[in-house]
Design a protein around this nucleic acid. Sequence first.
DNA 1: CGGTATCCATCACGATACTG
DNA 2: CAGTATCGTGATGGATACCG
Lengths: 107, 107
Amino acid sequence: MTAAPKFPPKTSCPAEKTLQALSGRWKILILRELFDGVKRFGELQKALSGITQKILTQQLRELEADGIIDRKVYPQIPPKVEYSLTPLGESLQPILETMHDWAVKYH
Amino acid sequence: MTAAPKFPPKTSCPAEKTLQALSGRWKILILRELFDGVKRFGELQKALSGITQKILTQQLRELEADGIIDRKVYPQIPPKVEYSLTPLGESLQPILETMHDWAVKYH
DNA sequence: CGGTATCCATCACGATACTG
DNA sequence: CAGTATCGTGATGGATACCG
């Protein structure tokens, strides 16, 4: 489990919650893929060249736990799993755009 | 050396630059203090109850390297150092507000 | 196909002590 | 006052192998 809180200073700051939700080596890239539409696990792995199954699973699970993405399993052989943004996840788009613009503006 | 870049996937995404600039256990809290106005090192340390000198220095140096804050040294005894936001740093305020609102909206 | 289970490397963060 | 120098630790990411 290692269920230790990840970002627990004494001062609780809401903005940090958002930062934490996006913090992860691949999360923004994953979200960028999903802004494009529903994607299967394999599609994501192919798009995110270099990511391993373990890490992709891990990052997806965290996004799911934060209510940002949705995981739909089709119980069939071979398995099929689709990932999509929740409304909450879609509401991140303007934030990511702003962050994008900020980074671009001065580089 | 181990001078490996910290966040360098194959896919370069500007939004990640912004995320990286804000990533750090105390950075958002430091920025919140500085939105309030110019602060001395000791004032920041007092406000950020629990932070050590080493970590505060470290986080401040990173923010400075990213062009977000300004460090002004008064060459006197005892030393006096003031930290303030650069224009770039101030331009982060709307982003942090948006992140704040996002976190608050659904919690 | 879409995962787990292990094992391992790295780095951010921190406790503590010392200094110009 | 505002740092630097050491040493240590746990969370995070990754390489690899196996599974329903």
